[in-house]
Design a protein around this nucleic acid. Structure first.
Lengths: 333, 333
DNA sequence: TCGTATGACTGGAACGTTCCAGGGCCAACT
DNA sequence: AGTTGGCCCTGGAACGTTCCAGTCATACGA
């Protein structure tokens, strides 16, 4: 349909309104310098011709795109929450987002390469698994902001993940739990910090002897598998902290199917406060990452780098927050 | 970092390699017309200067972007599956994707407007809720392909949703079920067709008297709420067909918590075969929408429109397929 | 009355590509 | 020997904007 021949250009509108291209350009951008009557006439002409400015030419000439590239994993619930928040953070600062998804069939390298083509002014990467050396190379080409992963070569915005697990353990211990296990995230970004936080908190409350870390991962299946292993091994803990919400839903499922009641028989704490956790029928106690704050910082930092300010502080660390919902309770007496 | 002053251009590379801009252009595009030795020298120069072509200029000049815009809901598991498949379908045809997400804070109009600014050659919309009149206006500006919704004003690729529910009912009836309920999708795209399919299939198997449609929706919460209502009402069905997988997980959760075993006590069939359904611990019998085929068709159709072929057939309908997993079994004796 | 400031407008040069028409040059035909 | 036809390669004109330096009135202060 609608192959309306060539798209109209500034020149067409100019001719139609009997003014110069420059003037039309001014009017289209809502800049001062045109009389009200002319302005009206130009706008009318543009409307009549169905003119829409060509962003390619506009960007080429003005040199700026006001576009932030975002690389995220389409499978990761938490990344989706980040993207959601990034949209509003970027809009507040007058920027747009260009998304590039990592899928099972499209790896991070490809997703990143796609963005570079597009002339974004900065790149925001959600929990990237790209090696630090590669990230450094990227950062040499344009400002790179890494979200939710701890790395030294670029700007980083992340949650104090160790602190998050400390809060979880402390809260559970406060409820009376002692045998607290941790299903970890394996090699996922953030997993190491959360593991350490768990260990330190257990030690701080003299629960070392109950330390129990089960290897997990970031997907539902990882959580389910870990939970099955935990049940098989016997000596069941009374509470479990899980690497993330997604994995925790897998854990919950296995526990329920095994006939255990949550939280009466066993408590579960997730991580991320992704929208999964908030669903009424999951209603998961979890450690919230403050996506609003994180994305705001990420966008601000990106813009600061774009503007060329020399910044020293490369890592911004956001405080986590325990969200108490329905999957935790004191241990059975 | 790395504010390497102005980024190098074709001209810089040309000067550095001692050839003309045009030649560098050829080499960068991997076109024939350059000797192997010169080619090598040019590539080396480009690499040395860290040259990367500017896509804005490239697009401006060549008039094409080979870019397909995609509007999708970041909350919809099935849309994410579609996006995943679209990436590969587009790549196979030499196109790239530009994503624009609908979020709770960014409505479809905004997401669409964002795409129009951009240089995409066609727009693919996943289950859009935009009124038909608006879609028609859009379609006047550029080719629009609608996925997974039934509408008359644009090209449409969708699953035969009524047929999908027919398959579900037939299969359940074959297992021996008679009291088969349907938790519907309310006003969501596709819901009406699935409802109709359910009714027709029940009638076809003389199960009219057991017709039972519970109002649902597309989220987990909708499913959970509907399931609770169903249980409260008594006269429990032996099988439930649900509008989509996402809602079905909510249903499953409520059933399990109510102490019912799935599939021994009650069977559940989802819809979409989104990755949710495939998770080992959900393992949901479901009606698959063939995302691979749908996205392939969508991309092909988009390209055909871009190329200006006059096509008559505006709706392509893809066959659904029953995927039997672990949530269905014959009713208890 | 003259300069000069102000506002409305214009013309043309960028921006970094791609595309087109052609210019040498050499080998292979007539 | 002269023509032909490939190859490599070059120069310059687009593409549709924005930006800059002006022009030309008109109005204003002295």
């Amino acid at each position: 349909m609608a192959n309306a021949e060539a798209r109209p250009t500034l020149a067409d509108v100019a001719a139609h309104a009997g003014v110069s291209k420059s003037l039309v350009s001014l009017v289209m951008r809502d800049e001062p310098g045109a009389g009200p009557e002319t302005r009206r006439r130009v706008l009318q002409a543009a409307d009549q011709l169905g003119y829409h400015p060509d962003s390619r030419a506009r960007l080429l000439r003005s040199g700026r795109s006001r576009l932030l590239g975002v690389v995220f994993g389409i499978q990761h619930a938490f990344h989706l929450d980040l993207v959601t928040a990034l949209y509003t953070a970027a809009r507040d600062r007058g920027y747009e987002l260009a998304l590039s998804a990592v899928t099972p069939d499209r790896d991070e390298a490809e997703a990143t390469a796609g963005m570079l083509q597009d002339r974004c002014e900065a790149l925001i990467m959600c929990g990237p698994r790209t090696p630090a050396a590669e990230l450094a190379k990227l950062a040499a080409r344009l400002p790179v902001i890494v979200l939710a992963r701890n790395v030294r070569v670029t700007d980083v915005i992340r949650t104090a993940d160790d602190e998050g697990l400390r809060q979880a353990v402390e809260y559970l211990n406060g409820l009376g739990h002692q045998r607290i296990a941790h299903i970890d995230g394996g090699r996922a970004p953030g997993a190491a910090d959360r593991r350490r936080g768990y260990r330190e908190a257990m030690a701080a409350h003299s629960l070392d002897t109950h330390n129990r870390i089960i290897e997990g991962g970031l997907s539902e299946e990882d959580g389910a598998a870990a939970a099955r292993r935990l049940l098989d091994e016997g000596d069941r803990p009374t509470a479990i902290t899980v690497f993330n919400d997604r994995s925790a839903t897998g854990v919950l499922d296995v526990l329920t199917r095994a006939g255990l009641r949550v939280p009466e028989d066993i408590s579960v704490v997730g991580y991320d406060d992704s929208h999964l956790a908030r669903l009424a029928h999951i209603n998961l106690t979890t450690i919230a990452q403050d996506t609003t704050e994180m994305t705001r910082l990420a966008v601000d930092r990106a813009i600061a780098r774009i503007d060329g300010s020399e910044l020293t502080n490369r890592a911004l660390i956001v405080a986590p927050q325990l969200i108490i919902r329905g999957t935790t309770a004191p241990p059975a007496a």
